[in-house]
Amino acid sequence: MTLTIVLLGASALIGIGLYGALSQQSFVMLMMGLELMLNGAILAIIGFWSLGLAGMPEGQLLAIIVMAVMAVEMALGFALIVAVYRKRQADMTEALGTLKE
């Protein structure tokens, strides 16, 4: 019962995050969408580990890996934003049109 609720919440978070990652024009808002999807993934891991795996330690390890992925995503994402801003003074995806055509 609780596991179903946790997983439904996780799928809602992933859906909202996908919407944000696809729809936002600002780089940072786009990254927030990605983070929200990872948030849903962590919630699903917590639920599965706590209610379905009888506390296998590998489940907690998976959560730690997702957190490492989040740290990598944030650090490199912000570094890329800085690099793009230096080169193009742009903070929106629409301003990067050089790969078009």
Partner: peptide
């Protein structure tokens, strides 16, 4: 896409 992902996962 967001609604589809939510409904599909649910």
């Amino acid at each position: 896409a967001g609604v589809l992902a939510w409904l599909g996962l649910s």
